[in-house]
């Protein structure tokens, strides 16, 4: 199946604390559609409407300021919510997003790290990787960690993924693959991730909330501090 162009990416932004994801990260690919979700965290003590009444303009302005740094049309949405994760989940559903961008403080964007778990969700992951590789300077490393007896499957997974990216018009020289032998893929991913700038990981849990708090992406956010595109399950 050929890869589809133009992933849709949800970018949650905390508009209370004026958190700003790096602009470089948002202009990383011209073919993706960006949804800027400015969320205003509402404590239990206040009804969302109260904060909306007080801070709607602030929140809109902050999000607009961010949107203005991106040199193209983006969808902006401000939400006042008690529960960030649930809101992200709902918005991703509503806008039919392929991936969610979790912020990290690392600013370079050239080297993309793509741990692949299996055939699951591979189309979406590779489509996004192809989008990211449309820039000349970007390179991607496809990675699979498996136990010793599963190496053959791992190799075929990586080869197949490479072929599909090449079919989509990506220069093979910019695609690297690595196959690791380990019993603990999570740790291997976290260790290796430090060598790269951004990550593209597939959703591991059925629910988005679980996934955002879930093992791999959580460890990446905490330990690696690289921005990560978490690709949703279709």
């Amino acid at each position: 199946m050929p890869l589809t162009d133009g992933s849709t990416i949800l970018v949650p932004v905390d508009v209370l604390n004026d958190e700003r994801p790096a602009t470089d990260l948002l202009t990383i690919s011209d073919t993706v559609t960006l949804i800027l979700l400015g969320y205003y965290p509402v404590p239990d003590q206040a009804p969302p409407a109260q904060l909306k009444a007080d801070h709607e303009d602030d929140a809109q302005r902050r999000l607009e300021k961010l949107a203005a740094t991106i040199d193209r049309d983006v969808t902006q949405r401000v939400v006042f919510t008690h529960d960030r994760d649930e809101t992200v989940d709902r918005a991703a559903e509503e806008y039919d997003c392929d991936a969610i961008l979790l912020p990290g403080s690392h600013t370079a964007t050239d080297r993309v790290f793509v741990p692949l778990r299996g055939d699951d969700n591979l189309d979406r992951i590779l489509s996004l990787v192809a989008d990211l590789l449309r820039r000349d300077e970007a390179t991607a490393t496809l990675f699979h960690a498996a136990t010793a007896d599963k190496q053959a499957y791992g190799q075929s997974l990586l080869d197949d993924a490479t072929d599909r990216l090449v079919d989509a018009g990506i220069d093979p020289a910019r695609i690297d693959t690595r196959l690791a032998t380990t019993d603990d893929p999570g740790t291997a991913i976290v260790e290796l991730a430090h060598e790269f700038d951004i990550l593209v990981v597939g959703e591991t849990e059925p629910s988005l909330t679980d996934r955002i708090l879930g093992r791999v992406s959580n460890r990446i956010a905490d330990d690696v501090d690289r921005p990560a595109f978490v690709v949703r399950k279709p």
Binding site: Q60, E64, T75, Q76, V78, V79, T81, H82, D83, R90
Partner: peptide
């Protein structure tokens, strides 16, 4: 494109 802002219902 700005889609305005909204409130969330979070209590189940």
């Amino acid at each position: 494109m700005t889609e305005g802002s909204s409130l969330e219902r979070n209590l189940g």
